[in-house]
Structures are given as structure tokens and as C-alpha cells.
């Protein structure tokens, strides 16, 4: 009896592994298909502009407000620790580096996944469930070029801009708390920040990170939507998969990127 239970469990693990590998392969092929259909989709730039509106502009409020608050909290907590070592002047460095390198891309990416990624999945999934994608195909219009590619690129373009805005608002929030509220000297706040934050190593790497996260979230979102079972239940579980999957993927990719990007600067 226990042997059969064990075998059953192992079999289930095996089947699960096989399914996830098959799905991964399918996703990779889908990614290639999206890329090959992109020129046709991007030729009609208005479609992509529309998706930048839905993915980017409509995410602005949540990104700006969250950025401001994260920056303010970071300043309060950072100041609390730094002033014990008499290093409260370094608050600007702490806040700027945390935001530009990590929190900006990662938190903006997580917010983007739950705000825009879920919307993209739900929209494409519903279009599939209501046969709009089939109808398009039957009208000799390729849904990959007409529906998927613009949404994908809209997300990829929006994400780095959102992350930069998040970091900017965060630094502004830290300025408000650190300089205006606590009374750190404004000159040393900005000056120390500038002397340490490097354009290429910190800011460019941060932008690269956010672009990668944008790619990951957009790809997962369009894939889950396109792959959703054409039922109400299918669309809802696809939306959940988008948020959970892209959040985990962002964090995992962040680790890998950090290892490669900041290997030479004393972090490792």
C-alpha cells in the first residue's frame, strides 16, 4: 500500500513536470510567433499607442502614489538606522540606490503585473471566449498581429517609463521626509547621492532591469490570455496565473540580473 502511494505521488510529480516543460516550450514558441508578427502589428502604430494608453497611462496613478509612499517610508526607516551611526547625511544615497537599483524596477514591475498584466490577460481571454479571436481569423486578420503584438509592445514600452517614474517619485518622497520633515541638509542629501549613484552601473542597469521585467510581464500576460480556456473559469484562472507567475518571474529574474550586473561593484 505505501509503495503504491509513493509511486502515485512520483507519477503525479512526473506528470506535472512533463506538463510544465511542455507549457514552457509552447510559451517559447508563442514568444517567437509574437516577435515574427510584430512588424505587421507595429506598422499600425496607433494600435500600440492605444495599448500604451491602457497599460501605461492607466497605471500612472497607482505607480506615482506607491512610489511616493515607498520613498517616504524608506526615508523614515533609513534615517532611523543611519542616525545611530551618525551617517544620516547618507540618506540620499540609501534611498536613491535602493530605488534605482531594486525597488523601482521590482515594485513597479509587481504593480504593473497586477494592474496591467491581469487586464491584458482578461481582455485577450475574453476575446477568445467570445470567439472574437476566431472571428478575426475568419476575417483573414491574424490575431497575433492585430491583438497580441500591440499589447505585448505596449507593455514592453510602458514598463521602463513607469519604473523611472516610480523611482523619481520615491526620491521626491524621501526628499520631502528627509529634508523637509527631518531637516537633513538639502545640499548633502543631493550631493552625496550624486557622488555615489553611477549613471551606467546604477541607472542604466535599473532601466535594463525594468525593460526585462516589462518583457516578462507582457509575455506572460498575452500568453496566458491567448492560452486561456474559453470559459469564465478559464479566464479567471488565467488572470490569476498571470499575476502569480509574473510576480515570481520578476523576483527570480531580479536575482539573476543583480548577480550579473552588480558583481563587480563590491556587492559580491
Amino acid at each position: 500500500m505505501p509503495a503504491s502511494v509513493l509511486a502515485d505521488g512520483l507519477r503525479r510529480i512526473g506528470a506535472g513536470t512533463r506538463r510544465s516543460i511542455a507549457r514552457l516550450g509552447f510559451a517559447a514558441r508563442f514568444f517567437v510567433a509574437v516577435l515574427t508578427h510584430s512588424p505587421a502589428g507595429l506598422r499600425r502604430i496607433r494600435l500600440t499607442l492605444r495599448e500604451i494608453y491602457f497599460a501605461g497611462v492607466l497605471s500612472l496613478v497607482i505607480i506615482l502614489v506607491s512610489g511616493l509612499f515607498v520613498g517616504m517610508v524608506l526615508a523614515l526607516q533609513g534615517y532611523d538606522v543611519l542616525q545611530r551611526y551618525g551617517a544620516s547625511e547618507s540618506l540620499g544615497i540609501l534611498v536613491a540606490l535602493s530605488l534605482v537599483r531594486e525597488l523601482g524596477p521590482v515594485v513597479a514591475g509587481l504593480l504593473f503585473a497586477s494592474r496591467a498584466g491581469s487586464a491584458i490577460t482578461a481582455e485577450i481571454g475574453l476575446m477568445k471566449a467570445t470567439e472574437q479571436l476566431s472571428a478575426m481569423e475568419m476575417m483573414a486578420v491574424d490575431p497575433l498581429a492585430r491583438v497580441v503584438a500591440p499589447r505585448f509592445w505596449g507593455g514592453v514600452i510602458s514598463m521602463p517609463l513607469l519604473a523611472a517614474l516610480f523611482s523619481t517619485l520615491g526620491i521626491f518622497g524621501a526628499y520631502l521626509v528627509g529634508v523637509r520633515l527631518i531637516g537633513i541638509d538639502a545640499g548633502s542629501f543631493w550631493g552625496n547621492m550624486q557622488s555615489v549613484v553611477d549613471f551606467r552601473a546604477d541607472i542604466v542597469n535599473g532601466i535594463i532591469k525594468s525593460a526585462v521585467f516589462g518583457l516578462i510581464v507582457s509575455l506572460i500576460a498575452v500568453f496566458e490570455g491567448y492560452d486561456a480556456a474559453p470559459t469564465a473559469e478559464g479566464v479567471s484562472s488565467a488572470t490569476t496565473r498571470t499575476v502569480v507567475g509574473s510576480s515570481l518571474a520578476i523576483l527570480a529574474a531580479d536575482f539573476v540580473l543583480t548577480v550579473f550586473m552588480f558583481r563587480g561593484v563590491g556587492v559580491l
Partner: peptide, 17 residues
Amino acid sequence: ALRRQVGMLFQFGALFT
């Protein structure tokens, strides 16, 4: 080219919402 010659009415219309 064929599909440009074939119209199809889907079960619930499948209008673009």
C-alpha cells in the same frame, strides 16, 4: 485569400466589444 471570400457569423455574434 479564401477567408476574404467567406463571411462567418459566430454563435453569439463575436462582435469586437
